[in-house]
């Protein structure tokens, strides 16, 4: 029997190599796919910013510095929304990847790796914008990175219940994502909610504590770590329809 013939019919004396290839392939393909989407997003976003900048300057007549700071904030928020959408869309591709022999766990790992890489890449973009405008310090930049990652994971959390094919799980996933997003965004909220928080006696002390930037960073990282642990477990229970 020729080598080629035996290669095709042997189920798995190369099994571990094959499964490793599936995981590496999934990571590579996800990165490639997400990278392409991100490039499109950046091109479109830059175009929109360039188009809007004269209009904003004309209408509000702010000083140059505050316009640049506003643009940096818009950039950070847009990145977060983009990552939230990516976090919603990509986990739903589980069935597509399973068609190619990837397990649920491998796909979840690949998603985590790709999501983390994307978060870093977009934090670097925000960093470049911030460096140009000198509006973000190192701690805030770390906060941007953490919020990027958290947004991706929150998007994933929002759709994780749908993959379990249970109404309560689907509703619970969305609700949990909204609650966690609210908690995470409180420290970065504008002054008004912050003041409300300071004077709201009914709020627990830990919520006042997260008003500190460093504490809020830790808070977001803890949430991200928790989600990175829980989401692959939820994905393992995903039911596919065919």
């Amino acid at each position: 029997m020729s080598d080629e013939t035996s290669r095709a019919s042997q189920p798995s004396n190369r099994a571990s190599q094959s499964s490793g290839r599936a995981l590496a392939g999934a990571v590579r393909y996800l990165l490639k796919n997400m990278g392409t989407s991100t490039l499109w997003y950046l091109v479109i976003f830059t175009g929109v910013l360039v188009a809007l900048q004269p209009l904003v300057t004309l209408l509000s007549k702010p000083d140059a510095e505050s316009t640049q700071i506003a643009l940096a904030i818009v950039a950070v928020n847009s990145n977060n929304i983009f990552l939230l959408v990516m976090g919603i869309v990509y986990p739903l591709m589980l069935e597509l990847y399973m068609m190619f022999g990837v397990t649920r766990r491998q796909f979840a790992r690949a998603l985590l790796v790709a999501g983390a890489a994307l978060s870093v890449a977009l934090a670097v973009v925000s960093g470049v914008v911030a460096w140009a405008t000198a509006s973000l310090d190192a701690l805030a930049l770390a906060g941007v990175l953490a919020s990027n990652l958290l947004c991706f994971l929150l998007g994933w959390l929002a759709v994780s219940g749908f993959q379990l094919r249970r109404v309560l799980a689907a509703a619970g996933g969305i609700l949990a994502a909204i609650v966690m997003a609210s908690l995470a965004s409180m420290p970065f909220a504008s002054k008004m909610p912050s003041e409300i928080l300071q004077h709201a006696d009914w709020l627990p002390n830990w919520l006042r504590f997260v008003q500190e930037p460093a504490a809020s960073l830790v808070c977001m990282l803890v949430m991200a770590a928790l989600l990175a642990l829980v989401l692959p477990l939820l994905m393992r229970q995903a039911k596919l329809k065919c």
């Binding site: 094959s18 499964s19 068609m99 022999g101 397990t103 065919c242």
Partner: peptide
């Protein structure tokens, strides 16, 4: 091949399942 295929990377990578994917699916 003697092993449970569910979440088994070794078994899954050796199985090709060809079916009519749903029209709303990503494929």
């Amino acid at each position: 091949w003697g092993q449970d295929p569910f979440e088994s990377p070794q078994a899954m990578s050796e199985v090709a399942f060809v079916y009519q994917w749903r029209e709303e699916g990503f494929a």
